[in-house]
């Protein structure tokens, strides 16, 4: 090829870097649409990552491993739900607690597994199709979770904006008092939304420890849970834009890795800062327009629902 043979491998790595963000972002989007702000994504992703990794090492069954990751994320989300929905604790503080707890508990569970290798998640291989130049490996050579991530984005988009249940969920997020007064169970619906968010974060974490870097390391999410939170603001709570944003951030992450490998004349630390600085820049650009945020953000986000009040 003519000097562009690096394009396909780069795109492939961008996909693996973006997929965990797609999962975590789309899960949190549903949670936030129901009016709940869960800042504990980082903790749920770590729980998912370590559980999936341990399950994969012990059983060798990757379907079971991903399911275990999702369950671990849901368990963490359930704790968050009990505190914020049933016991009406402050959502910001509880989210922080979830992250700190997740860092600790995942380090404890994973301590005997640090540095152990595991086979990376298997990639699709369809004779003929996958071998096509350029589009073959990109379209037909991914692992199952990449396809699932796209499916989930479209499914969530359809659910939120084309189904009655989705309308109810958005109503709960925009005006919990109104939804309550016409007989919907605000708390019940929010529990479901929080659990969905947990499952998605868990799968996002599982993707990190099974596919992106097939290993377990303490605190391996390195802030991705927080980047996912920023993504939702960037996407102004639209599922399709979460996908776009995740690939943008995935792109920046990979770009700096390749720049480091190519020996760009910049210290590696400066390049490693890029994804975090980009997050801040994007957040600033989007948040600048206060009315736009107010128009798109669920009106009841972060507010405690108390039916008697």
């Amino acid at each position: 090829m003519n000097g562009f043979e690096w394009v396909v491998p780069v795109i492939l790595t961008v996909i693996t870097a973006a997929t965990p963000l797609v999962f975590a972002g789309i899960g949190e989007l549903v949670t936030e649409k129901a009016g709940v702000l869960n800042l504990g994504i980082e903790g749920m992703m770590l729980a998912g990552a370590v559980t999936a990794f341990v399950t994969a090492t012990l059983t060798g069954n990757y379907i079971l491993a991903v399911a275990a990751g999702a369950l671990a994320g849901m368990f963490m989300a359930f704790l968050f739900g009990v505190l914020t929905l049933s016991l009406m604790a402050n959502q910001v503080a509880t989210g922080l607690a979830l992250t700190l707890f997740g860092i600790g508990i995942s380090a404890l569970i994973g301590q005997d597994f640090v540095g152990e290798p595991v086979k990376a998640l298997e990639k699709l291989n369809i004779a003929g199709l996958t071998d096509l130049p350029v589009i073959g490996p990109i379209l037909f050579g991914q692992d199952a979770l990449v396809y699932l991530s796209f499916f989930v984005v479209f499914a969530v988009s359809w659910f939120l904006f084309k189904t009655k249940a989705g309308l109810i969920l958005r109503a709960v997020g925009d005006s919990h008092d109104a939804a309550h007064s016409i007989g919907y169970s605000v708390i019940g619906i929010r529990y479901l939304a929080v659990l969905f968010g947990g499952a998605m974060s868990g799968i996002g974490g599982a993707y990190l420890s099974l596919a992106y870097t097939p290993m377990w390391a303490e605190n391996m999410t390195a802030g991705r849970g927080w980047i996912a939170l920023a993504l939702i603001v960037f996407a102004t709570w639209k599922p399709g834009l979460v996908l776009v944003g995740a690939y943008m951030f995935g792109g920046i992450t990979i770009l700096q890795l390749h720049a480091q490998a190519a020996g760009l004349d910049l210290p590696s630390q400066v390049l490693s800062m890029l994804p975090y600085i980009a997050t801040i820049v994007v957040l600033v650009i989007i948040s600048k327009d206060e009315s736009r945020i107010r128009k798109h953000a669920p009106a009841c986000i972060g507010k405690i629902f108390h039916p008697a009040a």
Partner: peptide, 15 residues
């Protein structure tokens, strides 16, 4: 890592 678990747990129970 038990330290981290303890610390997280305290905050959880407190909230």
């Amino acid at each position: 890592a038990v330290t981290g678990v303890f610390q997280g747990m305290v905050l959880f129970y407190l909230l």
